[in-house]
Each structure stands twice: as structure tokens, then as C-alpha cells.
Nucleic acid binder design. Structure first.
Lengths: 186, 186
DNA sequence: CGTTACATGTAACGTCCGTTACATGGCGCC
DNA sequence: GGCGCCATGTAACGGACGTTACATGTAACG
């Protein structure tokens, strides 16, 4: 990829993360990136392809970061808590927030954003499922874990209350451990 | 309120529920309602005030429906399950989906939609908190319950899988009951 | 030096947007 | 019948949008 184009992708990621994507338009994005709408079209072909490239980049970057953190969990800490700490870190949080917005918009307008949903939802579920201890490796349990994470993350996005949402997650982990009488929940 | 205006609010609710609000524009809405953009502005003053009126109507209607169902829970069923059945019913689901979209958009663009967040999030939390048995009446527990509900609902919105999300909720209720050794979770 | 390819600037196109100006209905009231 | 008020239709405004046409710069290469 041309180096200039790469810079533009970086700038676009920064702009999207800050402004959301529901009302994205080229001219303000271009101004923020120090270029012009003309050049964005020149480099990417169309707004749609620009979005595709930017979001794909962001998604794979987050996936890589996620894989890295999933390898190195703290002792005595449930994987769910490891992921939570990663998700709410200053580096990951804004990007994840953007991807949750994408998820919602895709659900309401699949003809515009549907292509970003195909992999994502099922992949995450399967990933969580295989991380579960075999005795609990059910669709219901995996779905529940994903939902707890998603729900708390969105609560955090809405209210900004890191402490309360983190305590709620800890409470969940405690409840699961109590229910099975010890062990490490995912 | 003028009867014609009331009809327009109804039509707008139907349109919004179907098309989402991220890219709402007056002319298609007017066409679907059998009128013209001119008349929408005439009756409501501006697009913004139309949205305010429509969303307020929708919110208070859902709140009333919620209160009604919260009074009449099934025996042996956790309140959370009662609300879930209500939420995924054909009548409530599309409206709730719209309000979740509103929530996300408000988080990304508070200057446009922020006014809809002030009451909502804190109110729900407090409502759930007071419904909890005193021993568990903590912010963490209330936050967790709200998050489980929200997370599962959004998973349902994204995937449409009623069975799996409902089973996940049942699994959660089972886990909570096991953790406390019987009783009725909220 | 001339050519070629990529990069960029300026300006416009056509379309949609929310909103407004202006004219015209219908309908009760004096 | 005239008058006023609410409702409505037609058409336009100014502005933003994604995109394009066209000209110009710049730098590498023969």
C-alpha cells in the first residue's frame, strides 16, 4: 500500500474513533486528515471502499491485540476479567466503542453494514465456547458470557462509570464460582 | 393535540421502528405517512422537535407497558425472565430495538441525542436495584442484571436467535439461584 | 529535455437535505 | 356573503453531500 494511503487510513481511524460513523462525511474527515475529499476518493475509489478498508484494518488490529492479551492472563483472574481490563484500557476502549456502534448500525441497516457482521458475531461466540471448560461448553453459557461482556461494555460507554461496571463483572465471576463451587470461570 | 398530528406521530413511530433513526429524513418518512415534508414541519416545527415528540411518546408507551407486565409476573419465574419474555414479544421488540439504537447514537453524539440518556440509564438501574431482595441490593448486582439483559437483547438483535438467547438467560437465572442456594433472583 | 505516472488543487455536477415563501383550499362565524 | 384560520400543495432556497472533469504540479526515467 502506498505510504500516503497508509497515513490516511491511520488518520481516518483516529477521526472515526472520535466522531463515530453514523454521520461520517468526507470533507470534515479530509480536513482532519490534512487533505481533501478529492484525494480520499482518489486513493480509495469511493467512500464505501474507504470505510471498508479502515474498518477492516481496525478490526484486524483489535483482533491481534486481543489474541496477544488472551495468551497472557493474570493468575487467579478469570479470562473474562482479563479481557475486560484489556477492553477498557485507554488504547482499546475507543476502538471497541466504534465497533459496537458498527454492530448496532449493521443490525438496523444490513444492506449498508451487513458485511461486517458475518464473521464477527459467530466467531466470537465460537472463540468463547472453546475457551470454556468442557463441562460448561454449551451455547447457552458462551452466549451468556458474551452478553455479560457486551452489556457491561455498553453500560460503560453510556455512563462512563468504570468502577461500577468493573465491580459488576467481578460480582458475576464470584457468582459463577460460587455456583460451581470453585474453579476458574471463563 | 390535533388529531392529525397524533396520526402523524403514530405513522412516524411505525416508520422509525422499521427504518432506524440514524439516517432518518423527512421526505421518505412523509411519503410513508401519506403526507409531505412540508406538513411535517408545519405540524412539528422542525425535524428535531418531531423526533423529540415521537421518541418521547415511544418511551413513555414502553414504560407503561413495562410497568403493566412488571405487576403480573408468572409464578416460579424470575422477574428477569418475565421482562425478557415481554421484551422479545412481537409487540415490544421492534420498539426496544429502536431505543437501543438511540442509546448507542446518544453515546457517540451526545450533542444530538444526549437528552434521551439523562433519565433512562439511571432510572432503569434504580428500578432494578429496588426490585432486588435487600441482601443483594448493591449497585454491582443491579448493574450486572441490567447488563445481562442488555447484552442478550443486543445479541438477539444481531443474530435473531431467540432460542439461544433465551436459554442463556435461563442459564444465568440458574447460576444465580445455585450461587445463593435457592430463592428468587431479580 | 521530453515523456510518463502519480499526486494534488479548483471547481463544478447532480442529488438530497431541512426549511421557507407563497398561494390556495375548506370551514366556521359574523 | 365576507372574513379569518387552519390545513395543504407547489416550488424553491441555501447548503451539504459523494463524486467527477480538468488542469497542474512533481519527480523518476529514457
Amino acid at each position: 500500500m502506498a505510504p500516503r494511503k497508509h497515513e490516511l487510513v491511520e488518520a481516518a481511524i483516529g477521526y472515526l474513533v472520535e466522531h463515530g460513523l453514523a454521520d461520517l462525511s468526507l470533507r470534515p474527515l479530509a480536513a482532519a486528515a490534512g487533505t481533501s475529499a478529492r484525494l480520499l476518493i482518489y486513493h480509495f475509489g469511493s467512500k464505501e471502499r474507504l470505510l471498508a478498508e479502515v474498518l477492516d484494518t481496525l478490526q484486524s488490529r483489535l483482533r491481534a491485540s486481543f489474541d496477544a492479551v488472551s495468551a497472557a492472563g493474570q493468575e487467579g483472574e478469570a479470562p473474562l476479567q482479563t479481557f475486560w481490563k484489556w477492553a477498557i484500557s485507554r488504547r482499546s476502549f475507543p476502538s471497541l466503542r466504534l465497533l459496537y456502534e458498527l454492530q448496532i448500525l449493521a443490525a438496523q441497516k444490513p444492506e449498508s453494514y451487513g458485511r461486517y457482521l458475518e464473521r464477527n458475531s459467530r466467531d466470537w461466540l465460537e472463540l468463547v465456547r472453546t475457551a470454556l471448560p468442557p463441562a460448561e461448553r454449551t451455547d447457552a453459557m458462551a452466549t451468556l458470557l458474551v452478553a455479560v461482556f457486551d452489556g457491561l461494555f455498553l453500560e460503560l460507554v453510556s455512563t462512563g462509570d468504570r468502577r461500577r461496571t468493573t465491580e459488576a463483572l467481578d460480582e458475576f465471576v464470584r457468582i459463577v464460582r460460587r455456583a460451581r463451587g470453585g474453579g476458574t470461570p471463563a
